[in-house]
Design a protein around this nucleic acid. Structure first.
Lengths: 336, 336
DNA sequence: TTGCGAAATGACAACGTTGTCATTTCGTTA
DNA sequence: TAACGAAATGACAACGTTGTCATTTCGCAA
């Protein structure tokens, strides 16, 4: 009473202050052209004076939509920043905000749970960022009225999916080796549970088999340089090892350091390719050739896919965003 | 008609199906104990059968709150993943979802604009992630009914802020050098516009001046290894240079490589400290001592600060999350 | 000045939920 | 069995906005 009221300012308050009807205020905001200029000015001054801001809840209730896209982060990894960046930028561009929830560390979350939680939040559609397998992946069915896109390399029976072409990227790298006269390619994987590691391995295997080459036993890494180093020490002793594909750049660097410490040279003795193309940030004059995925583009595609499907949530598509081989000098051409 | 209706299922539909009143459905959901078990079961079966999901808009409209915290990303950098992770986890824990918007690449956005946009979205409070200066920083006033926390190293006249203690971290690193007999410390900055770089420089300067040491001209870097390498080449020629503080690990690594290429050894000839403690991911057996900030903790604190302030949006506090010096072997003790 | 169609404005219901208060039902005791 | 208090349920209004349709006002031609 004596002090200012906490109560929010409603359109009705503005209407009274401006001496017009509530509906006219609504119009002044949403269809400015249908209101006489003098009226519009009155309304805007009143809004200004009272500090009116549209009530999101009331508006969405009436409209039946929110203008928000849900994002579920099952996993938050390095490349995720760029992906989120892409999602957010694309959302911004199309006039959507993002509603985000996250799987808590340690906790398990199924797609069904995520969908149920999201569907109680202000969202018109949703994106799941799924980099590891979940129990109900195959049986999951998205709410019929809520367009759902899953970012994952796996194919899903009913939902649209968007993914980097991990397999293709790995194949590309292998063929790059093979086309330059290498007879075989060793592979160092990332963490076992990561789908990206699994897919990269699959692509590597497929590329070799397509040429009738028996893939050697892959080496198990954990994404970090030290595991690459350990793998490098092993590989240094294999005389037939001329080409190494590491599932990321950090491990690739580990491999290179191990080879150097064993007196071998990259690329003269052994050629190496990594993934992600981020070594140059950390290593001056980096020579590592690397497969780079366009995470930002991935996010943009995912968001666009959701928005495109808002009217037809049951539509289904599969988008693959191809990788790019960033060529430096860590691969030797044996044919030369 | 013939096919299924698109129309959403409301509590009223459930009520009719279950043969109870609308209010009883509401109670079965929100205060299960106030409803007889048999009734509750009827209601739940009906909900299940019809696929009922609470309408967020209606609920928030009635309750006057959303259960969402807004996050504005002015800038999306590397450490941001962990911070978002912290924010999201803390939000989850306290039963909040996140509503996110982002400054578009290239576009300029003021705090006032961000606040205006956010206040039209479903949020009870908001967090601004601000890593560079904005025009209206000092004049900005947050909406009086919306608790606002800014993540930034700058102090703000009216809003709560949360930040890594960048300055303190830099001071800590310098003192670590000085306490080990180094007479001076060279500094390599990150990108000019980054507040974290500015603050790290400020802390470095302050630490030296506190001991009566004239800080040498800082070297300008850009966060990447190559710029560190260039700086390292310069420093290698300075006979008085025994200690180098680089504003991040990548540049620190660049420095170390340059020194090595110039025939100098780390730490025997020159000692080096970096920031962020992430070199070990990329470099096997990394020896770099580094100041690590707890970005995740930063996010958690920011979210908790918002939630704590929901009832008193005009409260103001300043939180500094201290850094940690992760000690490896890149610093020589000259007193020995 | 009058009349007309178009433009501007207004009254009222509706969106789907929860709070308030009234009513019904239940289990217990007299 | 009747009467009572507590527990369970229901009727209705309200949250703040937008859509529908009715009404008023305006500009212009007759």
């Amino acid at each position: 009473m004596t002090t200012m009221d906490k109560k929010n300012v409603s359109m009705n308050d503005v209407a009274i202050a401006a001496g017009v009807s509530l509906k006219t205020v609504s119009r002044a905001i949403n269809e400015p052209d249908s209101v006489r200029e003098s009226t519009r000015d009155k309304v805007h001054s009143a809004m200004e004076a009272l500090g009116f801001r549209t009530n999101f809840a009331a508006r969405s209730l009436k409209l039946g939509r929110y203008g928000c896209i849900g994002v579920v982060l099952f996993h938050l990894s390095g490349g995720a920043v760029d992906m989120i960046d892409g999602i957010a930028d694309a959302a911004e561009e199309r006039g959507f905000a993002l509603t985000m929830i996250k799987k808590r560390a340690g906790e398990k979350m199924t797609l069904a749970e995520a969908a149920r939680r999201m569907s109680q939040l202000p969202v018109d559609g949703m994106i799941f960022n799924l980099r590891q397998m979940v129990d109900d992946f195959d049986t999951f069915e998205a709410p019929k009225d809520l367009k759902t896109v899953i970012i994952t390399p796996m194919e899903h029976p009913t939902c649209s999916t968007v993914s980097d072409d991990q397999e293709g990227g790995a194949r590309m790298a292998c063929e790059y080796f093979l086309n330059r006269g290498h007879k075989n390619v060793y592979f160092i994987s990332g963490k076992k549970e990561a789908l990206s590691s699994q897919c990269r391995m699959k692509g590597w295997r497929a590329a070799l088999e397509a040429r009738g080459i028996e893939p050697p036993e892959p080496l198990q890494g954990d994404w970090n340089a030290d595991s690459g180093y350990a793998a490098g020490l092993v590989l240094a002793d294999k005389p037939d090892c001329t080409a190494v594909l590491a599932a990321n750049d950090c491990m690739a660097n580990g491999v290179m350091m191990a080879l150097r410490d064993k007196g071998l040279s990259v690329p003269d003795d052994v050629s190496v390719i990594g993934f992600d193309d981020e070594l140059y940030k950390t290593i001056p004059n980096s020579i590592l050739t690397s497969v780079k995925f366009r995470h930002r583009e991935l996010g943009v595609r995912a968001l666009n896919e959701v928005v495109a499907g808002l009217e037809a949530p049951s539509s289904r598509s599969r988008t693959l965003v191809s990788g790019v081989l960033v060529e430096r000098s860590s691969v030797k051409d044996l044919r030369a």
